[in-house]
Design a binder for these strands. Structure first.
Length: 594
RNA sequence: CGGGGAGUGGCGCAGCCUGGCAGCGCACCUGACUGGGGGUCAGGAGGUCGCAGGUUCAAAUCCUGUCUCCCCGACCA
């Protein structure tokens, strides 16, 4: 491609709306253009990068045995009502009306449609297992798009769905996708961590996220040196006992005006972990039923609402939680600031965190204004269902490596961008949409599903986030919009330079390389600055000076030095470099992760 | 949805407080010079100052409303 013909131009200054390096560089380089909040156009350069990313994803899906399909992006809303996910997605769902006032969903994901498609074409175990995928535009009316391409409202996703007869089959399908994901992230040169995750609105049981760790990431992941990695919503940790003494008699203590754990600990001169914290929520289930929830944790811990919702889930479907209103608190017979797990009224569901049973003699509320209780003991003074409902925080001990002789190492916390997510979905959709196939015995069986997503736009953004310097992007060879940046200096003054650059352009292309040829009549500074900004892996410079010496200058974008290569060796050398770089990425083992 | 910030040529900004000619840098066009890290000079084109209403002889500027974008939070496969 000749740059004189390339649509799009570079900017010296980034638009002030862009905060992240990836966003700024993609805008400055003319890769993308913003149309509205979370809505972007891809210019020719950006489009090529995206296409290369998609192709890598496609190749790995095919290699893993998945078959490509293409599903509609607009769905009758009734299909979403059948699974209840019109409610689950809520306002995130884009809904439009057609001319006959029928409501249609702009698809945010495709479990419903793929399940229906499967149901219509699969009849027996002979049709299984099968994994179908597509690369397609998704629509989600995010409450707050942000960070350039990191959270957008219209985006390209590779989504795959597996169907198996039993758990063993699902495990195999899931593992195949998991390995394909590792290969994909290796090939695009983005280091990722696979973290255990909550399944969210998609439902199902068991999922892992592939995260690119970066300060700008929206997700928080907890990591342990033992290899454990989990999303903050999911991370498990060890509760260390806060005391081992025998239960002492319950006693009241006056605590006027002390309504917070910090205040209580300070007032009584005890550690926060010697107190019990009460948090109240109103749970709303899919059928509209509401129930007051009373969560009890040791004072130093925070409630993890996702865990809490899962702990009280009904049939695998967790309620939505919201803090109780003051009126609801009063209705439940609770005294805010002094709520006590002892003597909670009927109708209020009490859930105690794992930390509670191992913590004797806690200070808790008395459910009377200005009074707390000392020496509250779980089991003696009160009972409740016990579950893991606390948020893991840095410094907490890893639950995975605890027990095996050690007490567990301290977790650390990092931010990350979720690039991919693999779910063991189970039978949520096949059951709600009444799908079954015949097994070998001729009996109806409900297939079990997995679903697997990759955000292609995020892949592009993460690649830039992972690979750039103060001058611009440093594309991994497998994603670069072109392989070679050919710069001709002073071609307008020296016809021989133009001639040599034109010839080289042609020879490189014949050698199978994609070349971006800077044939503009610009000063060397402008051309080099643009080459650095655009970030192609290899830059070749043809000039009068080089030509006189019979050389072409070669510079690897990721490196510091440039080499002078004999004119007749430069094509071979460039092709060799390109092959080495792409080969290294494409053949990379799943190593550099974590 | 709550809180904060911002809308002035394609990009970055000044002008607004104190109403009175729409400006600067970059980018763009023409010409000349220059020629290895965003070069110089000369001449140009391009803006209903987000939108609507109001105040005023006069509004980018003051007032009211509204829309959009960005950031923090809530939410989020």
């Amino acid at each position: 491609m000749r740059m004189t013909r390339l649509f799009g131009r570079t900017l010296r200054e980034a638009p002030s709306d862009a905060e992240f390096a990836s966003h700024q560089l993609l805008l400055r380089g003319g890769f993308v253009d913003q149309l509205a909040a979370g809505v972007y156009s891809y210019l020719p350069l950006g489009s090529r990068v995206k296409r290369r990313a998609e192709q890598i994803v496609r190749e790995e899906m095919d290699r893993a045995g998945a078959e490509e399909v293409l599903l509609p992006a607009i769905h009758p809303v009734e299909l979403w009502e059948r699974t209840g996910r019109d409610q689950a997605f809520g306002e995130t769902l884009f809904v439009v009306e057609d001319r006959r006032s029928r409501r249609l969903v702009l698809a945010p994901t495709h479990e419903e449609v793929i399940t229906r498609l499967f149901a219509g074409h699969a009849r027996s175990y002979r049709d299984l297992p099968v994994t179908l995928y597509q690369i397609q535009t998704k629509f989600r009316d995010e409450a707050r798009p942000r960070g350039g391409l990191v959270r957008v409202r219209e985006f390209t996703m590779k989504d795959a769905y597996s169907f198996d007869l039993d758990e063993g089959g699902l495990d195999e399908s899931y593992d195949a996708m998991y390995r394909a994901y590792q290969r994909i992230f290796d090939r695009v040169g983005i280091p990722t961590v696979a973290a255990e995750a909550d399944s969210g609105a998609i439902g199902g049981k068991g999922s892992q996220e592939f995260l690119f760790l970066t300060r700008i990431g929206e997700d928080t992941v907890l990591l342990c040196d033992c290899g454990y990695a989990a999303n903050a919503e999911k991370a498990e940790f060890v509760r260390q006992p806060s005391g081992d003494e025998v239960p002492r008699p319950l006693e009241e203590v006056e605590t006027p005006g002390v309504t917070t754990i910090e205040g209580l600990a300070a007032f009584l001169g005890v550690e926060a972990e010697r107190t019990a914290k009460a948090v109240f929520f109103t749970a709303t289930w899919a059928d509209g039923r509401e129930q007051p929830l009373f969560a009890v944790l040791r004072g130093e811990l925070q409630v993890n609402e996702v865990k809490l919702a899962n702990a009280v889930a009904d049939d695998g479907s967790p309620p939505r939680l919201r803090p109780m209103t003051d009126a609801e608190v009063a209705d439940a017979g609770l005294v805010a600031g002094y709520a006590s797990p002892i003597g909670v009224g009927r109708g209020v569901r009490v859930v105690a965190d794992l930390s509670i049973p191992g913590s004797p003699n806690l200070v808790a509320g008395a459910n009377r204004e200005g009074i707390h209780l000392r020496n509250v003991n779980f089991g003696r003074d009160w009972e409740a269902e016990v579950a893991d409902i606390a948020l893991a925080e840095p410094g907490h001990l890893c639950a995975r490596c605890a027990g095996a002789g050690t007490e567990g190492r301290a977790l650390r916390s990092e931010h990350g961008i979720e690039l991919g997510h693999v779910f063991r979905l189970g039978r949520v959709f096949t059951e709600s949409l009444r799908v079954s196939v015949l097994d070998e015995q001729g009996t109806q069986r409900v297939p079990t599903m997995g679903c697997y997503g990759i955000g292609v736009d995020r892949l592009v953004a993460a690649a830039v986030e992972a690979h750039h310097d103060e001058h611009g992007i440093i594309w991994p060879a497998t994603l670069a919009p072109y392989d070679v940046h050919l710069v001709a200096l002073g071609a307008s003054r020296d016809a021989a330079v133009a001639e040599e650059a034109d010839a080289l352009f042609e020879e490189l292309r014949v050698a199978g390389l994609d070349v971006l040829y800077d044939d503009r009549d610009e000063s060397p500074g402008v051309k080099f600055a643009d080459a650095d900004l655009l970030g192609l892996p290899v830059r070749l410079t043809v000039s009068s000076r080089n030509r006189r010496e019979g050389v072409v200058e070669l510079r690897v974008r990721a490196g510091a030095e440039s080499e002078r290569i004999a004119r007749d060796a430069v094509v071979a050398r460039t092709a060799e470099l390109h092959a080495a770089e792409t080969g290294a990425l494409n053949g990379a083992q799943a190593s550099a992760r974590l």
